[in-house]
Amino acid sequence: MSITLDMAQVELREVNTTLQAAAKAQANEAYTITNTRGSHAIACGLDGPLEVTVQGSTGYYCAGMNKEAAITVTGSTGPGVAENMMSGVVTIEGDASQYAGATGHGGLLNIKGNASSRCGISMKGIDIVVHGNIGHMSAFMAQKGNLVVLGDAGDALGDSLYEARLFVRGDVKSLGADCIEKEMRPEHIELLADLLAKTGADAKPEEFKRYGSARKLYNFNIDHADEY
């Protein structure tokens, strides 16, 4: 049984307070949020197991700072969805705007449509699966975690990348500084197969190319000492 919070009746602050309290109480309840009308910061800061369905499209920063909760948005989301996620699952049925999953430490962000620019910027351990395309400057300074893209990637993919793994099935418009194509080893196929299965993605791991850091930018090179 899902409890409905109708945003035509209940203020955003009360919606979030209710969800946060239910998550904290480990109640394992299910909530449905209706009449969102593109509001900002829906279902933010949930710290515990909770199932939340957000019906419709949202504004900025939906499902931010998520921990353990499973949040599904049936429409599209504005900038900064699932920012700084620690754990749990956030699913977007539509498209996500810029910097989806930014700085995420863990958990899974599953975007069924496209994500625009700066997807996974500075990601720190999150897994992001995008069923469509991603925009420019995605995975900029990404440190850890996996970004999987079934469609195409825009300009400067993985610029100044640290140790995150990037898997793209389609075309990459251009690679950013210090990002290179890398060999797909058996452990990568296995990892990718698991993420594709978890997100219900219609793709085979062998169809993807892997990109990662050339590790030239973030390691101090003694031969360049004179440059500083």
Partner: peptide, 18 residues
């Protein structure tokens, strides 16, 4: 922002993109 579309007729059936 998408918020500005909330009162447009048949917005739920619209093609929405960035």
């Amino acid at each position: 922002e998408y918020r500005a579309f909330a009162d447009l007729p048949d917005i739920d059936g619209a093609r929405v993109w960035e």
